[in-house]
Design a protein around this nucleic acid. Structure first.
Lengths: 241, 241
DNA sequence: CGATCGCTTGATGTTTATCAATGGATGTGG
DNA sequence: CCACATCCATTGATAAACATCAAGCGATCG
């Protein structure tokens, strides 16, 4: 398996051999987490950032009265809490959805990168900006779209994100996310998620068997979700100089 | 008037004299915008980032069916579209709410900073991460809180943000935002914003005369909004070394 | 002075939450 | 291997939050 972070960053820039070696060096310490296990506790102050090498994970807040808001779903190659490098305190925790292999990148190593590798620094900064761009897209679906549009939008987003890492084939992908988690991400009750997904199936837009999701009508699903992949900045290249 | 950006960044780190001079140099080109004028058009690819020196501004998306989602309200000292330095294409536009004086910082200058001033680079990166942290807090209110809680939360947030730049006195501040704009930010119809604000007034939590907002019961307003200022990372210091 | 803007109010309809219960699938200890 | 528990998807009935439509009203402005 090629290195997920290097693969990811190479889509956003052209790394030198030295830079690739640096990335390999700082991500050599790995850990494995079981499903539902906390990778980064909510409210903690980690000394390293967690790069997902394999598996799916969530990032989530809890409101003061205990309700959970999932702020991101993470897939292999995502730097789930790179922002903790500079923000220190994690308002949002990271938890494994499936078994996850995670590289733990020391913040001290990241700081060295900012001192010696300006281009690599910009590439890493860029990944946190894409993360924020996804937040803004989700804000728009949360604030201005109905439940079926939100879910359709998300299914489109996952298709494109998984496609770039080779986890989508024939408009089908594995989505190890329960209906309760979808509800917590998109501000919908579990019951309503269930009914909306049934509608999308009944209209012939999607099929699902177990955790496998099939997109049967990509065009119409994008229309329903008012989806455009622009905000993911897939394959946007950062110039070196 | 002291320089708003330097004031802002000095709360997040300790800048050297040389670094302060660099910041002054790159933000010397200014422009003035009238209320409602676009500062950064939605979908554009600016060659510079806009730093608000004075005035209030919004950042906003439009869903494909034309509904507006406001993703941020900006106050003096905010680098409204610093993310356009690396993301290039602006999915969200910036528009003036009041008359705004804006410093236009060339992306080429920002790139030079990343090459020569690692500490300054981290401080700038940090500001984009705080921006994203606010997005996540808003996502939580959008997804998991009711209209009156969302608005109460926002009024608390503005109190603290305006306090740090000296625009809050005696639990009172100027809020040049219409009820329609509040609705577009928090996923609520204008009519409902109006009724919720009336409720908050009737309960004695706030008073408003024209654009002036007074917080009459800070404790209870925070409770209603389930607010804690942690996510704003006010006065968090980044170590130099 | 008409026009526009922002705020307000009332009446009605829709989306979605909540509560409660069921059933299949999976896993676990005895 | 079975009894039991747990998780997740599903269904029906009722209630709440909020949107939409429509109209009026004061302030401001060219």
């Amino acid at each position: 398996m090629s290195h997920p972070l290097i693969g990811r960053l190479e889509r956003h820039g052209s790394l030198s051999g030295e830079e690739k070696q640096v990335l390999r060096d700082i991500s050599s310490r790995t850990a494995v987490y079981r499903p539902r296990e906390e990778i980064v506790p909510e409210g903690s102050t980690p000394a390293h950032s967690s790069l997902i090498l394999s598996g799916f994970a969530t990032r989530h807040n809890h409101s003061l009265d205990g309700k959970r808001q999932i702020t991101a779903f993470h897939v292999p190659g995502d730097f789930a809490d790179l922002h903790s490098f500079l923000l220190k305190k994690m308002e949002d925790g990271v938890a494994a959805l499936t078994e996850c292999t995670v590289a733990q990148v020391a913040h001290s190593d990241l700081k060295e990168i900012t001192k010696n590798y300006p281009y690599l620094t910009r590439v890493l900064w860029h990944t946190t900006l894409v993360d924020a761009a996804v937040h803004r897209a989700w804000m728009t679906t949360l604030g201005r779209m109905e439940a079926r549009e939100r879910l359709a939008h998300f299914l489109c987003e996952m298709r494109d994100r998984l496609d770039t890492i080779g986890l989508m084939q024939d408009n089908s992908y594995e989505l190890p996310i329960t209906q309760e988690e979808l509800g917590d991400a998109f501000g919908i009750s579990t019951v309503h998620v269930n009914r909306v997904l049934q509608d999308l199936r009944a209209e012939g837009l999607i099929t699902s068997r177990g955790k496998t999701l099939v997109i049967n009508d990509w065009e119409r699903l994008q229309q329903v979700g008012q989806y455009s992949s622009d905000y993911l900045h897939i394959d946007q290249k950062l110039e070196r100089d």
